[in-house]
Design a protein around this nucleic acid. Structure first.
Lengths: 321, 321
DNA sequence: AGTTAGAATGTAAACGTTCACATTCGGGAT
DNA sequence: ATCCCGAATGTGAACGTTTACATTCTAACT
């Protein structure tokens, strides 16, 4: 910065002003300074700026290391939203199973001086486990309940409700469910939507199996249902498991959708071309991300509470019985 | 830091030493200082440290915003590798189609003072388009050719070769290919592997269709092949397109694998349960990420060149004709 | 006891900005 | 001509560390 100042013959402060408050500096001076900046290839050192202003324009993103569709998409969406807000994203993945890992994640973010953090929290107790140093920075939660912080998520219960309602409208009388693992917000909400839709439709409770989100666990759950239950439709908590269920049904001599209707959740890229094409729901990651970034960029802390954003229902062959 | 020093009755410098060169400070003093650090909840300010040392322990990751399986997995793997190396990752996604976006991405990373950068480069000219300020920091390339920088990638050509060889060993005489889009390194390598395997097996060139990695484009390509070519096997450049191809084949009255053998690439989570289960190859993202992080952490610049890491061949029903 | 090497600790300056305040410069009103 | 005000620019200090060097202490050697 001093080099630029010297080249033009002004003080370093004038250069600083050209960068931060251009309207305060005379036009002729400003142009000369800008010219010198270009010629000398000067780049403001944002580390030094951060030291003085205590703002880094960095936003921390803490995500579970699961590698599942939802969290991954959420991270990508958050990066885009942050970029559009002029911030950069520091990504820290956490294995919720490793003791101390959540604390370590916060530690890293705090040390790098992030201005705020977004927690991608598909696990129910993930936020709590993170035990963040209270109110040291603005925090928002994406895709789950937020405890003491503002949270934004897709209305998965509502989408599940609609999907089950759709299955029923296509003639299903006994709708089974393959749920996600206990302790996941997504799993619980989708399961609730299923229960509520059945109850509201005056249908009896359906059979329940539980997987771990993986395609293999879906296949396993499908076999389990076939062995133990009567059903003419299955609502599966995600697409990968849904494909596993379909596989089990086909192996069991059932045809989808002729004998059993199936609906999944997530709209993974493959689900539009599988045999059969999969009825599912797509989350609005972009809207969730925008809301989270806005929340952590806000000057004053936002009040806690969960705001739900609508999902997109996608009807395809697997439920067109 | 001063607070801690005052609490213990030493100078700030001693506190600094406890943190950076503990062996230089007497054990009794060190313990008292560490105690005070804990009690006061002191956290070293890495921004200030970065200002003085010109090292931020931040590594930039530039990835295309495509949302495809490969780049996404690569980013997750890079974060893990960086974390294990004591660094944090600043993620910047780039839309290669937007003019100026690559420059903007570099600009962001430079301003935040990252110590190095890894470019996830599945597009052939992505690295070149980035036009990085030459040698301003160590750079490595993940999943593609690196131009002037060290690059690490899965041996996709080799894996494709093996997959096609496998199809031939199962009796295929005419192996078609659905390739990825022009300009992608992955697409080119997989296509080359296919060509070379056919040539080495003494078989004629196969029919070629080209998709855009999406499942829908795979279905489209499958129909195209059915209409215009004779074949008894298809090697598809990724799993999503492979599922699309299978869909088209089934709709066209062909059975997989009875009439046509199919192999994909990527081992997406669903491919283990689809009907039929998909033969495919899995990339070694972890190894690529480790190599890249090691390269940008190295003190002296590594020589350019592409190092290939082996893929895992996964044989399943779709090729078991 | 005096000297000295080494260990342990302390002090001053610097990293590249921004903030708060001080100064200078023009020009219009008195 | 004098005064004063706003616009434009300059100066000093500070942000929280680390680096380089200076000092003090300890204990072992002559």
């Amino acid at each position: 910065m001093n080099d630029v100042a010297r080249a033009v013959g002004v003080s370093y402060q004038t250069v600083s002003r050209v960068l931060n408050e251009p309207h305060l500096v005379k036009e002729s001076t400003r142009e000369k300074v800008e010219q010198a900046i270009r010629e000398l290839g000067y780049r403001p050192n944002s580390v030094a700026r951060a030291l003085k202003t205590a703002r880094t324009d960095l936003i921390g993103v803490i995500a579970p290391i699961t590698g599942h569709f939802g969290p991954t998409k959420a991270v990508c969406a958050l990066e885009r939203a942050a970029r559009e807000a002029g911030k950069a994203v520091v990504l820290v993945q956490v294995d919720p199973g490793v003791p101390g890992a959540p604390e370590d994640a916060w530690e890293r973010l705090l040390r790098h001086g992030v201005d705020g953090a977004v927690v991608v929290s598909p696990c129910l107790n993930f936020v709590r486990a993170l035990r963040p140093p209270v109110h040291m920075m603005p925090i928002a939660v994406a895709g789950g309940e937020g405890g003491d912080w503002p949270a934004y998520a897709t209305d998965q219960r509502g989408a599940a409700y609609e999907l089950v309602q759709h299955l029923v409208s296509r003639g299903a009388k006994r709708v089974a469910h393959v749920a996600g693992p206990v302790g996941w917000w997504d799993a619980r909400e989708r399961e609730r939507g299923w229960r509520e839709a059945l109850a509201d439709a005056g249908l009896p409770e359906g059979a329940l199996a539980r997987g771990d989100w993986s395609a293999e666990s879906g296949e396993e759950s499908g076999r389990e249902l076939l062995a133990n239950a009567e059903f003419d439709a299955v609502f599966v908590a995600n697409d990968q498991m849904a494909l596993g269920v379909i596989r089990a049904l086909v192996d069991g001599g059932k045809s989808v959708p002729a004998d059993v209707l199936v609906a999944g959740f997530d709209d993974i890229p493959a689900s539009s071309v599988t045999v059969p094409r999969l009825t599912t729901a797509g989350q609005n990651f972009a809207a969730v991300a925008d809301a989270c970034i806005a929340a952590v960029s806000a000057t004053r802390a936002l009040s806690p509470g969960l705001e739900l954003l609508p999902a997109a229902i996608i009807l395809r062959e697997s439920s067109e019985g």
